[in-house]
Amino acid sequence: MEQSTPWEFSDDRGRLAVAGDRPLRIVTYIQAGATLWDHGIRPVGLFGSQHDGAAPDPAKGGELPLAEIPYLGSGGALHPDTLLEARPDLVVAVTYDGEQVYGLEPKTALELEAHVPVATVAVGPGRSLAEVRERFAALAGSLGQGEPLVRARELDAAEDTLRQATGGAVRPRVLALSPAGPERVHLARPSSWPDLRALTEHGVGLLQPAAGAGVNWSTVGWADTAAMDPDIVLMDVRTNAARPEQLRSDAHWRAIEARSRLLPWNPEAPCSRRAHTRFFTLVADTVREAAGDA
């Protein structure tokens, strides 16, 4: 009798996730689920992080049919039994530090791994955007799925378009941020975010916050932000970030909004060729428009 080969995947915490057969029922952190969806894999359940609430964040959900996939909870309120009730063969999440399963309390992750394999993909500062994308592609491939070949050609074309848009004499000033409210804002440090580093590598003029506390963000007031004089603002669209209409009581924000082009930015976007093609194309179009108006 022919024996099946056990499924294995070496994750980015250096751990080997093993199952008797290729996993079919997969519960994921929502960003990971959105990425796997772009590879043709439908999760059976989703969970969020400590920054999320009782409902899934549409920004993190990408193209996922969120109304059709159970959302199991988020952060400290998420119990391992709730995840196990979805009867997963595998749990997929991300890690920022190469150690912790993001979105799960350490105790929850430990209890979960006693019952079901857990695989993580590193999305933090130590990885390039291409490396993150290829690690998800490798995981999806081990699960028998992948993005169509045409997606690679589309991404190559989008990267070429972005390099052409940033290669002119005028280089618009681009600032990535996450509004905390009308009094303060978190400015992204481009070196800490794989997608922002990729933009820089393709010639986008990303502004650097002043040195100081905070590895990923520099938290300042809107006056300091307006003084950076951005032409384009990449604005966090996750539900935990403040919306533009919540900021208009501040004159400095109103000045930014009046002179800058605002683009949606999702620091936890799906890590697929499809998603990155859309992102690079949007930035390229906006850089070209801003340069033309200069």
Rank of each mutant, 00 (worst) to 15 (best):
P270M: 06
S178Q: 12
Y96W: 10
G126W: 01
V118A: 14
A55W: 03
V101N: 02
P148M: 03
D12Y: 01
E99A: 15
V185W: 11
A32R: 00
Q31V: 15
T200V: 15
T225K: 07
T286M: 04
M235S: 08
R248A: 07
P56R: 13
R274D: 05
E85G: 07
W7G: 01
D156I: 08
W222Q: 13
V220P: 07
E63I: 02
W217E: 06
A275E: 06
V204I: 09
P6E: 03
P179L: 07
T219W: 06
P43M: 03
P172A: 05
A290E: 14
E8L: 10
A138C: 08
Q246P: 05
R184S: 15
R189I: 09
V237K: 02
R243W: 04
Q164C: 03
P65K: 12
R288C: 10
T95I: 09
Q208R: 02
P56T: 14
W37A: 11
D38F: 05
A255D: 06
A17S: 09
E99P: 11
P56V: 14
R171S: 14
A138G: 06
A119S: 05
L175R: 12
M228D: 12
P182F: 05
T120C: 13
D231A: 03
R163Y: 03
A34P: 08
T225I: 04
T281K: 07
P172G: 05
Y96R: 02
I69Q: 03
M235Y: 04
S260R: 05
V18Q: 11
F9K: 08
